Simulated scan of single mutants.
Amino acid sequence: MLKIGLIGKPNAGKSTLFSAITSIYVDIANYPFTTIKPNVGISFIKDKCPENEIHSRCNPREGKCIDGIRYIPVEIIDVPGLIEGASEGKGMGNEFLDNIRDADIIINLFDASGMTDVEGNPAEQRHDPGQDIDFVYSEIIKWMNGKVSKDWQKFARKEDNSPDRLEVKMLQKAATFGINEKEMILIMTREKFPEKLIHWTDEDIQRFSEAILKYAKPVFNIGNKADMVTDGELESIGTGRGRIYFISAQYELVLEKAFKNGYIRPEGNGFSFTDKSGEAQKTVINGIMDRINGNTVKRFYDVLTEIIKSLGYIVVYPVLDETRWTDKNGNVLPDAYLMKEGDTALDLAYRIHTDIGKNFIRAVNGRTQRVIGKDYKLLNNDVIKIISNSR
């Protein structure tokens, strides 16, 4: 399952957001370090389900499907807040940063209202929230630099005598961040570093850390507490810092509780009111949706879906029966896997089970009914049957 690390300085609203998007109620308070250990839960991204093509309701083993919209589960790791110097052990220190080593994507949730200080305490005067973006990124880079540079001279002398390729040597350092060989090759292909490790400078090590975040463990900035800030103020945040998204964890929590209490019901990409909802509930929820339906503030699920799609992830449905699109028990489209653009039918086979990958014979495209080979490149919403002599 794709893993999303949710980080940021204390009191940015991570616990509130985590509660809303995972339906797991954790401690929520307006002071630093409400979370003192990582919370792990399941959230979802959305995609159109192929069930409409065969006019048969799907039976998701994990996640859910509502009116032809498939909700594909992803793991959310709510990492306790970072303070300045965390990379040097201050506050909760490296313990927090170590929790993101297994994350595929990092989300830096920052306080878009600018009303918390560097340690997460409520502030009397608003500061530039863009500073929080820079600070968190800087702490991550410092943490990574510390891991890479540890015992560097000893490491460099030993590996410079090895015949291995540079990416193989550096994989020993990068593996501590959960980087695999494929990602390591991508980094070394996109960036140029000295062939001799003994010639690497502090600047080279920093560029290497930055390359990991750019190509293998990307960081996305999401401004929270948008309910406390005007659209004009939000649009002025983060100039020159790339794409920034804005949400309100408080909005998410209100909507989640409205679903849970039966005031609203899911309907396609949105919802409708039930008979249980009164004018007070409708007024509050309609006010939230008016803001979300503008151009600046979004639902977290929509932001997460956009981020994951922007990284080249696609949804693929493995089945046993390529004509009815079912598993051995007759469940329609039971599984939805997040794969990467460029992944092949063989990659899907290994994803299902190592033995199935090792004993791969061929595959069948569920739409065309045509036999495809191991090198077939998967497309979004593909329905694929894998044929293997594995038991």
Rank of each mutant, 00 (worst) to 15 (best):
L2Y: 10
L2C: 02
K3H: 04
G8P: 01
P10S: 10
S23T: 07
Y31K: 09
T34L: 14
S43R: 02
F44M: 02
S56T: 07
N59H: 13
N59E: 09
I72W: 13
I76D: 05
I77E: 06
G85T: 01
G93V: 10
L97F: 11
L97Q: 05
D104K: 01
S113E: 05
S113G: 09
V118T: 09
G120S: 14
N121Q: 07
G130S: 09
F135H: 12
S138R: 12
E139N: 06
W143C: 04
S149G: 04
W152V: 07
K154I: 03
K158H: 06
I185V: 14
T189F: 15
E195H: 14
I198F: 09
T201F: 13
D204R: 15
Q206N: 12
L213I: 03
K214R: 11
I222K: 04
T230M: 10
S236Q: 14
S236I: 11
G240Y: 15
G242A: 01
K257R: 09
F259E: 06
F271Y: 15
F273G: 04
F273L: 08
T274Y: 15
K276D: 06
K276E: 07
S277W: 14
A280S: 06
K282A: 11
T283V: 06
T296L: 15
L304W: 13
L311R: 12
E322L: 09
T323C: 07
R324M: 07
Y337A: 12
K340A: 06
E341H: 10
D343E: 13
I352E: 02
H353T: 05
T354C: 09
R370W: 04
K374D: 07
L379W: 11
